[in-house]
Each structure stands twice: as structure tokens, then as C-alpha cells.
Design a binder for these strands. Structure first.
Lengths: 192, 192
DNA sequence: ACGTTTCTGGAACGCTCGTTCTTCTACATC
DNA sequence: GATGTAGAAGAACGAGCGTTCCAGAAACGT
């Protein structure tokens, strides 16, 4: 039987994720990964495949974790407005605090989407999923009288999703939390 | 006296700009530039300096040109809402049509801002300038009764700027013009 | 026509990249 | 304890990077 791994596969993946998130794909060399993860080159290749596979594994992990978090914020029977407020706040907190790394999906959309079909497909699927999630919660709110019937849930969902993208960029490059919170407040007025 | 340049300095800069915009800084090699601009390596170095200097020159050119365009859209005495609608429409058109390259400033914010102080400074200055421009037009609109006095022009300006960032990302990675236009419509309701 | 200057094309440099190979060590099972 | 698997450390590889150097051609002012 094989010798046991001396590192936690998921934990190291998370560390790689943070590196990629902070520096991007191209700006993170394999040497960086080896040095900062404390795992040997060979082990990284054996465990995750090449650099691109490692990146995509990290991205997928990031997406499912983020999606779970968002679902949780929206699932209670609180007013939709509060749910989205919490969601946006958590997102601002998570993206500004970590050394202003922004959102790995948004970073990937900008850096890789145009010339990496896999990333592009992942981005489009994620967009659809997120817009779908938002729209379904908005529709539910409409049914229970928490949102005016005159609103278009799909359009609103898209709008909120696009706002999310903008905040991710601003948090990475400008990093002024207070401005972002102000924008969230204004964006959520679209629900009133 | 020296031999005259055989290429138009500004025109080649524009071509470089488009390459950088489509592929990003790291993903555009100097060989790419030499081959696709049709200018010899040496001439590029002599004229613009190294790769980074060329990138920054292109970015600055892009920024001033974009800023001029925006000022023009907002300067008439039409209702602010229409001014911003035109501005956003032009932006969607310009960023989706060009092979979905997005906005060079936004791309730079994501790819370079975190580890290039010059780009970061440029991004922050650009954000301030744009927010300032938006806010001043909104204030003017308030004075002539075109915008409710209850609105906060600065907060609104930030909101619109953040929306712009989001649209740039979406146009680069998703590229569905109709969704973007829908979002613009919703965002502009913040002025009502 | 000359000489100077810049152009062009391509070879060359040193470096870093992602990836593979090699050698050796550590452990769990038989 | 022998065996087999997978671990770690690092040398090695070819390719590509940004950049510089060089030789020859081309255009201008004198």
C-alpha cells in the first residue's frame, strides 16, 4: 500500500486558490506554487495534474463554495431586500479583506475567458446559475407580496448580477469598502 | 537629418492597444506585437520603450479618448437620463463589437492593479475623474430641476461608475448585448 | 554624391516558464 | 523484513519570454 499523503489535498487546493485569486493565472508561476504551498513539484503534478488543471480545480471549488454561501443568504423567509443586502455585504467583506484579491470568477472572466473556452463556458454557466437563483428568489418574493408584481424578476436578477461583477472589480482595484456599500444601497433600491 | 518613420506612431499605438485589450498584458508577447503591428522590434523599442511602457502609453491614450467621448455624451443640455443612456449604449457597442475585448482600463484593473502601483494609481485617478464628471453633471441636472433634490449626486455617480465596471466584465466574458441594455435600463431608474 | 541617421530583419542573450526525469526516503501491507 | 507505492528534493529540458546587438538598406540635409 502507498505511503499516505503528507498534506491535506483540499487545504492545499485552497491555498493555491488564494494565490491564483491574488495574482491571476499567468502571473502565478509553478515555482510560486511549489514554494508557497510547501508541497513538492512532483506531488502537485501527481495530485492535481498540470497548472491549468490545478487552476480549474481551484476555480470550481471556489464557485461551488460561493454558490452555497449565496443560497444560504437567500433561503430564509426574511424580506428579499435583506437577503440580498446580506449577500452583498458578505461579498464585499470577503473580497476587500483578503488583500483586495477580488473574485476568482471575475478575475478569470477578464483574464482567461476570451481565449480559454473552458473558462468561458464555466463563466457563462455560472452567470446563468446565479441569475437563475436570483430570479427564483425574486419570483418567490413576488408571490408572497414582498416584491411589486410590476417588476421583472429576470431583468432584476441580471441587474443584480451585473452589479456584483462591478463590485468585484472595484474591490480588487480600488478597495474602498464604503463606496461599495453605498452602491449596494442604491442598487437594492431597484427592488423598492 | 534622420530618415522619416515609415509608420504612423499613433496608428500603431492604437493597434497595440487593441491587441492588449483583447489578450491582456501577459498574454500578449512582444513577438505578437512585432508580427501583428508590422513594425520591427527595434523600431518599437526605439519609439515606445519597453513592453510595459508601450502598454502604459496605450492605456493612457485609451483613457483620454474614452473620457473625451463620455464628456461629449454628457455635455448637451438634454436630460441627464438621456445623456447617460447614450453613454452606456456607446460603451456597450464599443466593448461588445470589438470581438468582446471589454474595456482596457477594467482589464488592467483586474490583471495588473494588485501588483503594479502605476496601474493602480492610474485606475484610482480614473475612477475619481469619472465619478467627478458624473457627479458634476448630476448636480447640474439637480440645479435645473432635471433630477430630484433628494438624490445624492456623489453616491449616484459612484453607483453608475460601478455599473460601468460590471458591464465591462459582462461584455468581455458573456457578450450578450441585450442583457446589458436591460441592466442599463434598470440602473438608470436610479435617477427617477 | 556624400555622410549621417534611422530604418529593417534576424541572430543572439540570459532568464523564466511549465513540465519531466532521476534519485532517494518513508511508510503500510504481506 | 522484504516489497511496493508514493512521498520529497532538485537537476534537467525545451520552449518561450523580453531585450539587446548587429549588418545592411533606405532616406534625408548638406
Amino acid at each position: 500500500m502507498p505511503r499516505a499523503k503528507e498534506f491535506d489535498e483540499a487545504e492545499v487546493l485552497d491555498q493555491a486558490l488564494e494565490l491564483f485569486r491574488a495574482r491571476g493565472f499567468k502571473h502565478t508561476s509553478f515555482n510560486d506554487l511549489v514554494e508557497e504551498l510547501g508541497v513538492s513539484r512532483q506531488s502537485l503534478y501527481d495530485t492535481y495534474g498540470d497548472k491549468q488543471a490545478l487552476y480549474h480545480a481551484a476555480l470550481k471549488r471556489y464557485l461551488t463554495r460561493g454558490l452555497d454561501g449565496m443560497r444560504r443568504k437567500l433561503e430564509g423567509d426574511q424580506p428579499v431586500r435583506e437577503g440580498f443586502a446580506e449577500l452583498f455585504d458578505a461579498m464585499i467583506e470577503g473580497q476587500c479583506s483578503n488583500g483586495s484579491s477580488g473574485c476568482l470568477m471575475v478575475n478569470s472572466m477578464v483574464e482567461l475567458s476570451p481565449h480559454d473556452p473552458d473558462t468561458r463556458a464555466l463563466a457563462q454557466e455560472h452567470a446563468r446559475t446565479l441569475e437563475g437563483l436570483f430570479a427564483s428568489r425574486l419570483s418567490a418574493a413576488q408571490r408572497r407580496g414582498d416584491l411589486a408584481k410590476s417588476k421583472d424578476p429576470v431583468a432584476l436578477a441580471r441587474f443584480l448580477y451585473h452589479t456584483l461583477l462591478g463590485l468585484a472589480v472595484a474591490s480588487r482595484a480600488l478597495g474602498d469598502k464604503e463606496s461599495l456599500r453605498q452602491t449596494v444601497r442604491l442598487a437594492l433600491q431597484a427592488l423598492d
